[in-house]
Design a protein around this nucleic acid. Structure first.
Lengths: 101, 101
DNA sequence: CGGACTATTCGATGACTGTCAAACAGTTGG
DNA sequence: CCAACTGTTTGACAGTCATCGAATAGTCCG
């Protein structure tokens, strides 16, 4: 069984939650990592260059997903995270490029 | 006597403080107001469509200025606020357009 | 000088946030 | 069934933040 965790529809992505999600050094680093590597990626704490615990990373993935920046797929006991590049671009053209430049 | 309040140089504007500054509904509204009207504008609480007290507005101007988003000129007993459109664009091209779209 | 005015600073408060350890839930494989 | 594994949830805690009332600082004008 595979499923997708709840996330806002493209048209419901709001700018304030998006900016709040991006306004954290750890989450910004996660977004950068997602962008630079092929998606989807595992969301395991060992996969990213961040010095935080597993629960904290889980919390950050939730914030990013609920803001509409990422999609999380559940597959067995691993989860795959993907940047919603197209959706973000549709809603706020140029935002990711500007933030990650 | 006229003077400019302390603010980061263009090259020292960092993305995280900028995003933190923008990630607030009130400050986003202030930025919108600055962008839509000719600069500079008074920073008086009566000039903006926000329901906050004068001390709170003053706090928000400080956050925006210290993040590098605005310039504040002191002239007599009024202060003039200006969006640093050019500086922001130099540092993070397209950011303002993307955020305020 | 002294009152009116603009805006900030101070102090306090309630809400939110990032963090972790411990416990839990679902999955895989023996 | 059961142990190992991945990742989340819960509960707690320290730190930050937005907010306001009161007090303060500096300016203008009569």
């Amino acid at each position: 069984m595979s499923s997708t965790l709840p996330q806002p529809a493209t048209g419901e992505i709001e700018i304030v939650p998006v900016l709040q999600a991006l306004a954290d050094p750890v989450r910004l680093e996660l977004i950068r990592a997602l962008r630079s590597n092929p998606s989807p990626r595992s969301c395991a704490v060992t996969e990213y260059d961040v010095e935080i615990s597993a629960p904290t990373l889980s919390h950050h993935w939730k914030v990013l997903r609920e803001a509409g920046l990422t999609t999380t797929f559940v597959e067995g006991r691993t989860r795959w995270v993907e940047l919603r590049t197209e959706d973000i671009h549709k809603r706020f053209p140029g935002l990711l490029d500007a933030v990650l430049a």
